[in-house]
Design a protein around this nucleic acid. Sequence first.
DNA 1: ACCTCAGTCAAACATCTGTTTTATACAACT
DNA 2: AGTTGTATAAAACAGATGTTTGACTGAGGT
Lengths: 250, 250
Amino acid sequence: MKAIARRDVGADPRVRPHEGPTRGSAPTSRTDRETRDRLLRAAERLFADRGFKDVTVRDICRTAKANVAAVNYHFGDKLGLYREVMQSAIDRMQATTDAARRAGEGRSAEERLRRFILIFVHRFLDAGNDAIHRLITREVHDPTPAVDALVEQGVKPRVDYLSRLLAEIIGCSPSDQRVLRCLASVQAQSVAYLHNPIAERLGFTIEPRTPRQIDDIAQHIAVFSLAGVRAIAAATASARRRSGKAARGR
Amino acid sequence: MKAIARRDVGADPRVRPHEGPTRGSAPTSRTDRETRDRLLRAAERLFADRGFKDVTVRDICRTAKANVAAVNYHFGDKLGLYREVMQSAIDRMQATTDAARRAGEGRSAEERLRRFILIFVHRFLDAGNDAIHRLITREVHDPTPAVDALVEQGVKPRVDYLSRLLAEIIGCSPSDQRVLRCLASVQAQSVAYLHNPIAERLGFTIEPRTPRQIDDIAQHIAVFSLAGVRAIAAATASARRRSGKAARGR
DNA sequence: ACCTCAGTCAAACATCTGTTTTATACAACT
DNA sequence: AGTTGTATAAAACAGATGTTTGACTGAGGT
């Protein structure tokens, strides 16, 4: 009976006793919301450090100095809390895409790509965004039910923009396979610089990076990627010129 | 009391009742070892799919059609099984490094890099190696106590070889920061092609890749990377020529 | 025939974890 | 004063999980 009741609540969240402090976006009554915010902050860091399943609500509540029941009260369940953390990450990801896109408005295709990369890498490696990016990276390898929102709102807009941009540079359709591969090559490079235990064990990453170091990395990825994309465009162009297949090797 | 006894066993594994079927590398008595192998195979797949903590010994034993106690009997504990799975992954990683390194012996530095990338990507994306590479990638973001062996035996040899190679191409010391960044750029690209739920949700990766597709990807990464490394070398060379900072974009 | 020991199995154990329950405190409103 | 609704707290619950225990089997050696 209890199990059934719980399952019903899960299926229809609106049935929950409180559904958090008042529904919708009411002012939540008074000075409270403190606990809620502390939970969100603690959860963001812990989820980023260890992933959804390896963090217990007791960990979160201990860090946030709240009672164990606080998560269920304010967010329905653990997943509800995670979704809210992830949504804020998605929002910041969208903001980064928009900023990096705007930075190149009115420029040539190559210059738009260069500026996109520079802005993007700076935000990506900014210490203040470290948690959300580790969070997003985790969804790639260990998806939770929140992955759908991430893909639709966070990943797709960026992929669409970069695909059109790369297609213009290469001179082909955005659905051409080369576009996707260049997209992968460009975006993958940044991920290598997220803090991770193996890189640290090898002596790379001297912990909080200086703005200078971040800029050096951004310049590296921009130079490397521009040259890579040009080479891909040139290789296929010269291949087309001699009619045959790929113009690989020497 | 029981808790203490268990902790003692954990601290000194040699106290365990069996320590697996006979110690060392004795022939394990008779036809058995079947169960052990089934456990290893099941564990490799499950650990690769879901990570160390998200797989239960019950999952593994169910998959391997063995009893729940089988893991503790044959491998001491869950971590012992994981270590053995990881060791076989490390061994294959070493073999890939050696093969990719040998493929370029006696060639120019650039050609050695090109061949290294081609061999490496082929092995990396070979369907038969998919599990071990997802396993290794997991250690990057969610290290277990097995990460030390991975770094020492698997990662370091590859990093050392590629560092020397890239330093030769760029024309600088292997400890130069540009070497590390090019190394990151080259290796990071392959990781983007491991099967992951987000790429699949976006419609990329048409499941088991054909040898043709893998070769296309390998060629792409080789062309892209060679051009990228050359550009980094050229940028710093021309920068040195005019004494100032970076010679970016234009 | 007897013993030994690796291997397997079912059951039990102790712990951890997400969630629920019950109770209490406090503020706002009637 | 009384009611209502929000927030928090302590305890309890139910299920899962890594590990251990004790019994049983069968082959090999004496």
